[in-house]
């Protein structure tokens, strides 16, 4: 029996891309909405890459935005330098992709280093160490004058666009899915499930924990680079602990271990966040009351608490949508 398997995810992605692009061309979607879609896709990369570390391998990390920061600063510095040397380079996407990859590799290297504490530490202790690493990364950016110190790295060229961000997110999901649905991915899952038992069926748990951190950090670095070249800025506060928690909220809201959940939550929460920003401002204007933007984070933090109290498994639990999952042949 031969089965022609349709690459469902490819089709779904192409349809998504075509619709968004068409709506934008037809001016149904304005630049602002497209910007939020771009941000959502970047958060898809961040959430799905944290999902590999946290959801699949079970290594709790609170410093994920630190990796994104490394990617943002490294790629941003590179493109800014190149632009200064040769101002005609703006149309050369190849150079930008190389700079992004360089940022990803730098972040992966940091992730590799941070993977080592995970060999000795578990659960909340590991969370604290990754938080500490994230804060150290942020402190370092804050103190290097060459990248702007506390002012941030300014004047990054606007290389990121919808097509490029979309392709990056698409590739990330395919690569993550193919890893998770392979012997390597199952080895990572076994560490989450029971590390000692994984060890005692011959899994080199050390290798897989470091691998998860390295791969996760690589993609976070790419996402950071895309973000920096979208908003043309890399700032230490973008990559601090609170931002890492926002990504964490996404994977818990979506369901730890489910990439489908990460994707839905990244879109849902990015739009919710923007909606709240606009809604709160409108409410403040309409009522003339001093309602500040902090209420957005008040709602966010309550959301996190309620998810943990009442729906710990998140939206999807550990389930994957049929669109993303590869059906296994027997």
């Amino acid at each position: 029996m031969t089965k022609v398997k349709l690459p469902k995810f490819l089709i779904a992605s192409v349809v998504f891309y075509a619709i968004i692009e068409a709506l934008f061309r037809l001016e149904v979607l304005n630049g602002y909405i497209l910007h939020i879609i771009n941000q959502s896709l970047i958060f898809v990369i961040l959430a799905a890459s944290l999902n590999l570390i946290n959801g699949i391998t079970g290594q709790f990390s609170l410093g994920h935005m630190g990796f994104a920061g490394v990617g943002a600063y490294v790629s941003g510095t590179l493109t800014t330098i190149i632009l200064k040397l040769n101002p005609t380079v703006t149309s050369n996407m190849g150079i930008f992709v190389l700079c992004l990859l360089a940022g990803g590799v730098a972040a992966a290297f940091i992730g590799f280093l941070i993977g080592f504490p995970s060999l000795r530490l578990k659960g909340d202790y590991l969370a604290i160490v990754t938080l500490g690493f994230g804060e150290i990364i942020r402190t370092v950016f804050n103190n290097i004058d060459y990248v702007g110190g506390p002012r941030g790295l300014l004047g990054i060229p606007k290389f990121s666009n919808f097509t490029l961000i979309f392709i990056a997110a698409f590739l990330l999901i395919v690569i993550m899915r193919n890893i998770i649905q392979s012997s390597h991915g199952r080895a990572m899952l076994s560490i989450r499930e029971n590390e000692l038992a994984a060890d005692l069926v011959g899994i080199n748990t050390t290798q897989y924990k470091v691998m998860a951190f390295t791969i996760g950090a690589f993609f976070a670095g790419i996402a950071g680079g895309l973000l920096a070249h979208l908003i043309q800025l890399a700032h230490p506060t973008q990559f601090g602990f609170i931002k890492s928690v926002e990504v964490l909220i996404m994977i818990y809201a979506g369901g730890v271990g489910s990439m489908t959940g990460s994707i839905i939550a990244a879109f849902g929460l990015t739009f919710l966040s923007e909606g709240l920003r606009i809604g709160i401002r409108a409410l403040a204007d309409a009522t003339n009351l001093p309602i500040g933007g902090e209420w957005r984070m008040v709602i966010y933090s309550l959301l996190l608490i309620f998810i943990m109290l009442f729906r710990t498994e998140g939206l999807m639990g550990t389930k994957e949508s049929r669109i993303i999952k590869i059906e296994e042949a027997d």
């Binding site: 909340d124 309550l302 996190l304 608490i305």
Partner: peptide, 17 residues
């Protein structure tokens, strides 16, 4: 245990904001 830790992060953010 991690559920409590994440909740604690939520409580912390809630109080601050």
């Amino acid at each position: 245990k991690l559920s409590s830790l994440i909740t604690a992060i939520g409580v912390s953010m809630f109080l601050e904001y």
